[in-house]
Simulated assay, not measured.
Amino acid sequence: MPQEPSPAIEVPIRSLLPSDSPRLAGESAENVRLLAELDFPVPPLLVHRPTGRVIDGMHRLRAAELRGDETIRVQYCNGDDDDAFIQSVVSNARHGLPLTMADRKAAAARILQARPHWSDRKIAAVVALSDKTVAGVRRAQCTRVVAARVGRDGRRRPAGPPEPRDRIARMISEYPGASLRQIAKRAGVSPETVRSVRARLTAQQTSVPPVVQPFTWRAQRDPLECLRALTRDPALRATDPGRALLRALHTLAVIGPGPADLIEVVPGHDLDLFRSVAQANADAWRILADLAGRRVAA
C-alpha cells in the first residue's frame, strides 16, 4: 500500500524515466498543453527511488519538458516494482485526469497477479472500483489460488465462497430476538458477518426483495414502444402519482449514453456512494416489475 514519500526536492528532468502507467492510452496531449500554460506551481512528481521512474505526474513532467524546463520538484518513495505500480494507481485514481474503466480493470488484473492474497475490497479501494467488479476480474483473469486473503484492515481471512448475506438477512428477519452468535451458528458464519448484515439492514443500505412467484410474459415487447403507450394513457396522465411514475420512467429511458459511458463521469471517490444509490433504485424497480408480473399472471 502507499508509503509516505520523502520531502520534495528539485532534480534534473533528464534524470527521470517514464512511468509504468496504469493509463492504457498513455498521456493526453491536450492535458499536457493545458498544464504547460499554467503560471503557478504544480504539486511535485512522485518518483520511484530505486528506478527513477515517475509514479505520479507524467502529464506534469511532459508539460515541464514542453516549456523547456531543466529541473522539476519531486518526492521519492521506495518499494519494489509492484509497490510502485500500486502507488501509481492509487495516485492516478484519485486526482487529475481520471482513469477510465478499462484502465482500472486492467490495473485490478495486474494487482491481482502481484497480490492475489489481497481481498477484493482491498484492491477495490486501490483502483476505485466496486469489490464486485474486482471479484469478476479475479474470476476471469487471476489464475493464482490462495487459502486466505488480507482485508483492508490488515486481517487475514479464509478465501472461501462469498458469505450468504441474503440468507443471513432472512434469518435476522425471521428471528428478530436471536443473538448474533445464534444466527452466526445457524448460518455457519462469524458473528461479525451477522453484525455487518444487521447494520446494513438497519441503515437500509441493503434489502432482501420479497419472495414472489415467477411469472412469464406472453411476449417480449420493445420498452420504448411500451413507454410511448404508457405516456398516452389518460389513466396515468390524470393523477399526480401517475405523472410522477411517467417522469421517472422517462428519465431512465432518455438518459442517453450507455452504462459504461455514464459511469465514467462519476469520480472515483464517489463510486461507493453512487453504487449504493443505484443499487437501491435497481432494487425498487425490480420489486415494481415483480409486482406488475404478479398482477399480469393473476
Results as ranks from 00 to 15, higher is better:
3 Q>D: 06
5 P>L: 01
5 P>Y: 03
9 I>Y: 01
10 E>T: 00
11 V>H: 00
13 I>R: 01
14 R>I: 04
15 S>M: 01
16 L>Y: 01
16 L>K: 05
20 D>Y: 12
21 S>P: 08
21 S>T: 12
22 P>W: 00
24 L>W: 00
30 E>R: 05
34 L>Y: 09
37 E>D: 03
37 E>I: 07
44 P>K: 02
49 R>D: 02
51 T>C: 02
54 V>P: 00
54 V>Q: 00
66 L>D: 15
73 R>M: 04
77 C>L: 14
79 G>S: 04
84 A>R: 05
93 A>Y: 00
102 A>V: 05
103 D>M: 09
110 R>G: 06
111 I>M: 08
119 S>Q: 00
120 D>L: 09
126 V>R: 07
127 V>A: 13
127 V>F: 02
129 L>P: 08
134 V>L: 01
134 V>P: 07
135 A>K: 02
139 R>Q: 10
141 Q>R: 09
144 R>H: 06
147 A>N: 10
148 A>K: 13
149 R>T: 15
152 R>Q: 12
158 P>F: 09
164 P>I: 08
165 R>V: 14
172 I>V: 15
184 A>V: 07
185 K>G: 11
189 V>M: 03
195 R>L: 14
197 V>E: 08
212 V>A: 08
220 Q>K: 12
225 E>K: 12
226 C>A: 13
229 A>P: 12
234 P>R: 09
235 A>R: 15
235 A>S: 14
238 A>K: 13
238 A>V: 13
239 T>D: 11
240 D>Q: 03
240 D>T: 14
240 D>L: 04
243 R>N: 15
245 L>R: 06
249 L>T: 15
250 H>T: 10
256 G>E: 12
257 P>A: 10
260 A>R: 08
262 L>D: 07
267 P>H: 02
277 V>A: 05
279 Q>S: 05
281 N>M: 10
288 L>H: 08
289 A>F: 10
293 G>N: 02
298 A>Y: 12
